[in-house]
């Protein structure tokens, strides 16, 4: 009887641990939005062994540069990051990303603020690889004023700042649909089922059937062939959304590949360590308990 109970309690203890771990991953679907999903072909960087597809990162950068960056900044990102290991423009030949000609070229396309050391005036100059991507607006007020009151969020860590990460970015960009009948969408707003929000006050239908999702100020930003890819890939909306989502995933966590590789090594070591320690433990405790 007691043995069964002890076993049961042991199992309960382990179950409690498992439950704690499961609980600890916050399971709050943000405000009743639709659950974000990956593109059909999946993301190459997902999973413990996933890595970034460099071609996709380069295409993603192009979408970011030509579309997103018209309103959004990514100020935590430096130009040199583009040329570092696992980055979109990493080149074996240029271990130091500051020397990478593509990175230099990209940087020089941007103007960054500086101070003229002669006169003390504020000026702008072409960026160098060590500079950060410039701010889009001088401050949040200017950003709001130029965008109908909504501040376009900085995209540097957007995939870490939203539930679902890159899947969210992809789903949002491809998820615009016409608002359901009975949902009042104000001028300058756009309905998207993947956007977090609460639509109860704008809904005139059955109060128990408020549509999921929310409204945002960003109009659907992508349409087919909006950019021309250098590698000849057809620039469909889905392709561009997947590419830019991958780019932003990389931008938010540029060391992800190194992290996972390190993790595999660490786990292998720890498992071997556990093996020998278990053997030592068995020998040592033999006949002791």
């Amino acid at each position: 009887m007691s043995a069964i109970m002890t076993k049961g309690l042991k199992a309960l203890g382990l179950a409690a641990i498992a439950a704690t771990l499961a609980l600890s991953a916050p399971a709050f679907a943000a405000g009743g939005a639709k659950h974000p999903h990956a593109p059909k072909e999946g993301f190459s960087f997902e999973g413990p062994f996933g890595t970034f597809d460099q071609g996709q990162l380069q295409r993603g950068y192009k979408v970011f540069r030509e579309v997103c960056s018209n309103c959004h900044a990514a100020t935590l990102l430096s130009f040199r990051n583009l040329g570092q290991k696992d980055g979109p423009f990493y080149d074996e030949k240029y271990k130091n990303p500051n020397d990478n000609p593509i990175v230099k070229q990209i940087a020089s396309e941007f103007e960054v603020p500086d101070i003229d050391t002669e006169t003390g005036d504020t000026i702008t100059r072409p960026a160098t690889p060590s500079d950060h991507f410039p701010k889009k607006f001088a401050n949040s007020y200017a950003a709001a004023a130029s965008n109908g009151g909504a501040i376009p969020p900085d995209l540097s860590v957007i995939t870490k700042a939203r539930h679902g990460g890159a899947r969210y970015v992809y789903s949002l960009l491809t998820g615009y649909v016409a608002p359901p009948k009975g949902l009042e969408v104000k001028e300058g707003q756009h309905y998207n089922p993947f956007m977090a929000g609460s639509l109860a006050t704008q809904w005139s239908g059955d109060p128990h059937k408020v549509p999921v999702g929310g409204v945002l100020a960003m109009a659907p930003p992508l349409k087919d062939d909006l950019v021309t890819y250098d590698d000849g890939t057809k620039a469909t909306t889905h392709q561009m959304a997947a590419d830019v989502a991958a780019f932003l995933e990389w931008a938010g966590d540029p060391h992800a590949t190194l992290r996972k590789k390190t993790g595999v090594g660490v786990l292998i070591y720890l498992l071997l360590f556990a093996g020998v320690t278990y053997a030592a433990y068995r020998k040592l405790w033999h006949g002791k308990h």
Binding site: A25, K260, L267
Partner: peptide, 14 residues
């Protein structure tokens, strides 16, 4: 290690 290397933000909040 599983959390640090493979699920580093799973226990945090977006």
């Amino acid at each position: 290690s599983i959390f640090v290397f493979f699920l580093p933000n799973a226990l945090g909040h977006a």
